[in-house]
Structures are given as C-alpha cells and as structure tokens.
Design a protein around this nucleic acid. Structure first.
Lengths: 249, 249
DNA sequence: AAGTGGTCTAGACCACCGC
DNA sequence: CGGTGGTCTAGACCACTTT
C-alpha cells in the first residue's frame, strides 16, 4: 500500500491548455491544503507517482519541484519527499500592497496626492537607469484599508512607460494598470528598513510623532530587462508587516 | 555573427562532479558580472547556445532558468533572452545576518546574553509545532559589526535539535552551528515589521528612546520538514536593512 | 544492497511574438 | 511566416542515504 493513496486520485486533462506539470502541482497543493495529505507525510517516489498519474518522470519532477520552491514540500536525496510541517503558508513573492490587501479580505482604497510629469532628479534617474532630466511620472498616493491609513507610496516611472489617469489610480493598483498597459514586471530589487516618521508622514498616516515606520524601496524591471518603476513606500509599523517564505535552492 | 560571442568561449568539464548546468550557469554569471556580456544584451537562442557549449538543450535551458530565477536574465517567448539592465545584484535568499555581514566585509561579533534550556511557552510551542512545556533552548544574543551594536536576537530551538556551547555561539553564527550539527535549513517563514524600541532595547542597542527598529520573526524548517528554529530579532533601523531580489515565476 | 532523488540526453510538438 | 521559448517524453546513468 502506498503511503499516500490520495495522490492516485489525481486526474490530468490532456486537452487543457494548462501545462501538465502545473495541473499536477495544483492538485497536489489542493490535497495538501485540504489536509487529505497530512503535514509530515512522506510521498511515494517520483516514478511511482508518475505512473499513477500517467505522466513522465520529468513532468512529475517538475510538479514536485514547483511545490518545493514554494515551500510546501521538502526533499532529500536517498530519503524521499515530505510535506512540510507548517500550518499556514503565505509564499508571496512579487506582489503589490493592493493585491495583498485584497487577498487578506480587506477593503483597500487609494487617495492620489500627486500625479504629474516632470524631469527626473539624479536619485530617480540613477535608479531607473535613464538620463537626469528625462521626463518621469511622479506619483504620491495614500493607501487605506477599511478607511484606515496604511501606507504612503511614492513612485516614479519613465514617462514613456505609462499614461496615467488619476481616476484609474484610485480604483486600481499601479501594478494592475501596468499589466493592462502590457508591461509585465518580472524582477524587483527591494530594500526593507525602518525609521521614525516625520511630522508630515505622521499626520498623513494618522500616527503619533516619531512612530516607527516600515520602509520599502524598490526598483522593478519588466520582461525585457527595462527599469519601469522606482518607488519609496512607508508603512505604519503598527498596522502592516511583510510576510514571506524563503526557500534554499 | 552571434550577438554574444563571449558565450562560445565557455568550456565545460565533464569529468567534474559539478553538474553541467551549474558550470554553464556560473560561467554565464561570470561573463555578465565581468561585463563581457553587457547589460541589455540579447543572447543567442537556446539551441545555438547548447550547440556552442556542447550540451543538450534541456541542460542549457536549466542553466538559463537558474539565472532567470536569480534575476540576472529575463526571457520572453517569441522574443528571446536578455541580460537585465541592473548594475548590482544582491539576490540573498535564505541567509543569516552573520553571513550577510561577512559578505559585506564587516567584522561581526556576538555577545551571548542568555543561553539556557527550559520549558516552551505557548507562543514558542505553537511556532515550533511542539507540546507546551517541552524542553527548548532559549538564546539571546547581541550582534555587533565593527564593535557597533546592530541587532538583538532571540531564538528558541527544540532541545533535541542542538547542544549549545556559549563559546561556539560567540565565534560562529547559529545557522553555521546547525549546519555543522547536520541540520540543513531549507525553508523559512518570515514576517518583517517595524516598531519603536523599548527602553531596554534602546539601551542594549545604543539607540535613543523610541528609535525605530526593524523586526523579523522567523520559523525555519529543515530538509525533512521539521521546525528547528523560532526567532524574534530586532535590528537598528538606522544601521540595517534587508535587501532582496524578487522574481516572478 | 536497495531505494531514493539528481543529472543528462535527443528529439518532438506546441504557443507566442514580430515582421 | 520564421524564430523564439515552453512543454513533454522515454530512457539512461549517477550519487546519496539507509538497512
């Protein structure tokens, strides 16, 4: 008898445009999330699993690898593949605060404080890899969740990347607007730190003077390696934290 | 003529125990880091590259994928593979503060404030997935770099994971000691936030009262899915920040 | 010695992009 | 349309872990 008969019940759809390895990975993830495969369980080996699901070993490996990279499974040569003994997984990777809040079931709202085009200052030009003085869109927005201020966000984008309408910015996240404009962000270099709030920040965020803020500075690149966004955001330390899952590769 | 002749100069060693895909990836990375392949350059397609290096296409793909995951390359179907237009990459993944400081050329030092075994309190037991009251090692350490305080670190480990000697803790990082003990950390769930320093923290860290601190709470799992460490660390916001590279997968 | 995951191959077909 | 990366296969051999 197999250690995990639940896996044998997975069926793949070869007529679907969804890749086989992804179908398998998602079904496995569902079985793990639902508890049908318990935390700590050891899976059958790759060859048995591949046979049970009717896919090749490389495809099965790829599905497993996908979940290993997301921290749901761990594997050790000569030993086997096991489900990690974690209750909740929040393997966020590249996401925006807007998306995060929606996922958390909060009601996000955005107030646009500034949205204008002007010449890039040196710091911005350096971060974006463009010439100083080149036109950039400068944004400043206040993000609220359930009408409570959460973050103050300052962004700069090369003017040729995106045309911005204030109305759009109040109803959609910046990343969503970029996606709609055909800009696909693939890589971001981030730096996360902490500092005390300035009086102006404290006022906008509804914090006391000198409150601890979480700061995040980011430069994002699209799928042709072009810098498309530079942002400096500050979050209320009392109301927000970054959660992430790191995996050794 | 190829767009990047430098790649053709890569030679692989088939007698080496280092995997072929890794040899190729490292050589590519070196060529990019040294500037022999400039930022923004488009590489030849996979099949040409594979032929030039004398490896199969899957192996070549794997090498490229490795660098894509690390944010050095971006690829787009129907278009090609390009070098990202970033100057410096610091794609830290799963690492310890000790390792970070060594890499940055700083001189780290550790003072052990507490190292004792006792029963797990509820918060700790929950995080580690063990029974409340089970024996855990409790550590509190002050990390300094060039004799300047940087962080105050509190850790809990199940008592059966590691025997601890205070002397070891002052000369080696916790993760290094775990590695030596045969514990291989694979996954960590982290939460990063900010808050104001308590008077005791301010005193230990040499900060003013209410200074902004960067907080990191982490639970780490080894390669058989077992929780092996729970830690709550606070860093001086004025002296430390997390840098990371995120890649959409 | 037996069982596991890790690597590598040669080839096929498909989906997407830009001309 | 031609060129690119994305997926999938069947099989081989190897390295590591445990018994």
């Amino acid at each position: 008898m197999a250690t995990t008969d639940a896996v044998a019940g997975i069926a793949v759809d070869r007529t679907s445009p969804v890749p086989l390895y992804f179908q398998v990975a998602q079904e496995l993830q569902r079985l793990i999330a639902s508890g049908e495969i318990e935390a700590g369980t050891r899976l059958d080996n790759e060859i048995v699993l591949a046979d049970q699901l009717g896919v090749s070993r490389p495809t099965m490996r790829r599905a497993i690898q996908y979940l290993v990279e997301r921290g749901l499974l761990v594997r050790k040569r000569g030993v086997g593949t096991q489900v990690v003994r974690t209750s909740v997984q929040r393997p966020l990777e590249l996401s925006s605060l807007y998306d995060d809040l929606v996922l958390a079931g909060r009601r996000p709202r955005t107030t646009v404080i500034a949205a204008e085009t002007g010449p890039a200052e040196d710091e911005v030009a350096t971060a974006l890899g463009i010439d100083p003085g080149a036109p950039v869109v400068h944004l400043q927005r206040l993000r609220l969740a359930d009408d409570e201020p959460i973050a103050l966000m300052t962004n700069y984008l090369p003017a040729d990347v995106l045309e911005l309408a204030t109305a759009d910015l109040e109803t959609r996240g910046l990343y969503e607007l970029l996606r709609i404009a055909g800009v696909h962000i693939r890589i971001a270099n981030q730096s996360i730190g902490a500092r005390n709030a300035t009086p102006a920040e404290a006022r906008l965020l509804g914090e006391t003077r000198g409150a601890a803020l979480l700061t995040m500075t980011r430069t994002a690149y699209d799928d042709i390696g072009r810098a498309v966004e530079y942002g400096t955001h500050v979050y209320r330390g009392s109301r927000y934290a970054f959660s992430l899952t790191l995996v050794e590769r």
